[in-house]
């Protein structure tokens, strides 16, 4: 029997993620437009786009197999589950035992495999190209992400994300050099995984450079809406995991349901600041050549390894 407070916090988290993920995307787009001296689209533009797409007819190619049809639902399901497991508001989550950090990386991988299969399914050259690029980035980003999560695990002696954050958030303030380095590595990985500027430009449809957009070129209507929503959820999940690991203050612990009331505005404030920083990174960096991406992600991996080594040397 799940206690009521855990059930409430879990439900609140899922609703918050589903409702606010497009808002975060809209906020980042708006900041980016301001920084680049363009007039910004409205904050609610992603919701309007989703609404439009859900009302449109979904066109599927004749050669499409069932994989093409179910992929959006699987991707969306994976991302929603990740958002449910990541301790955004509270560490008292009944779903948290469902996946530790390793399984969490596995969930991202599952979504990636299905979206790549679906992209290759139609047989257009763009889809295959996008799928290959996505897998190239994925297989380099995953070990780096695992190493980042492991260095947090080493400090807290647990691989469950909820336990890690619970330990980090409710201990006396301490400086962890290993976590600082891991935080830099996590930023690199998050930029690559969310198709952000140094690796991929989310706003382009230029054939030579696109990765994420090439994958979903064949989708339309409600399928496209689900994938766009899943992409927003992924950005939200990555932001929340990063904030929970490296700035864990304000997240409610087990048995303190009232702290949730404080946790919501704290999370929104942290996300707002994080969004500005993301827009800043995207504005001051140029997109790198695709062949530089392995170098970029190798740097992230090595930083994460240094974090582990520093933890072993210094014990902090």
């Amino acid at each position: 029997m799940i206690p009521l407070s855990g059930f409430v916090s879990q439900l609140l988290e899922i609703i918050l993620a589903l409702a606010f993920a497009p808002l975060l995307t809209g906020w980042v787009n708006q900041c980016r437009a301001w920084l680049q001296n363009r007039s910004a689209p409205g904050l609610l533009q992603p919701y309007r786009a989703l609404h439009k797409l859900f009302n449109k007819e979904s066109v599927v190619a004749e050669s499409a197999s069932p994989i093409f049809r179910i992929a959006p639902y699987i991707v969306f399901g994976c991302m929603a589950l990740v958002c449910a497991i990541a301790p955004t508001l509270s560490t008292d989550l009944p779903l948290a035992p469902a996946a530790d950090t390793i399984a969490l990386v596995g969930l991202f991988a599952l979504a990636r495999v299905f979206i790549s299969l679906a992209a290759m399914d139609i047989g257009t050259s763009f889809g295959t190209l996008g799928a290959r690029r996505e897998m190239l980035i994925g297989f380099l980003a995953e070990p780096a992400l695992l190493m980042v999560l492991f260095s947090a695990s080493l400090i807290t002696q647990s691989t469950s994300l909820a336990n890690i954050v619970e330990t980090l958030a409710h201990q006396p303030f301490a400086i962890y050099p290993s976590l600082a380095v891991a935080g830099v590595a996590f930023t690199f990985v998050a930029l690559a995984e969310n198709a952000r500027v140094p690796v991929d430009n989310p706003a382009t449809h230029l054939e030579l450079t696109m990765i994420h957009e090439a994958l979903i070129l064949e989708y339309s209507g409600r399928h496209l809406a689900l994938i766009e929503w899943a992409a927003a959820l992924k950005l939200f999940a990555y932001s929340c995991i990063g904030l929970a690991l490296f700035f864990p203050w304000g997240i409610a612990g087990a048995g303190t349901p009232l702290a949730m009331i404080v946790a919501i505005p704290v999370l929104l404030a942290k996300l707002a600041i994080g969004g500005v920083l993301l827009a800043l990174i995207e504005t001051i960096n140029a997109k790198m050549r695709l062949f530089r991406v392995p170098e970029f992600l190798a740097t992230a991996f090595l930083l994460a390894v240094i974090a582990l080594l520093v933890h072993v040397l210094l014990g902090a």
Partner: peptide
């Protein structure tokens, strides 16, 4: 005492910064 603990930890932080910057120079 608390401030001193934090300062001792901040030495480690600066040291790690030194190491990471050495890596950044290589790349």
């Amino acid at each position: 005492p608390e401030v001193n603990t934090l300062l001792t930890q901040s030495i480690n932080l600066f040291a790690t910064g030194l190491l990471v910057l050495a890596f950044a120079m290589i790349a």
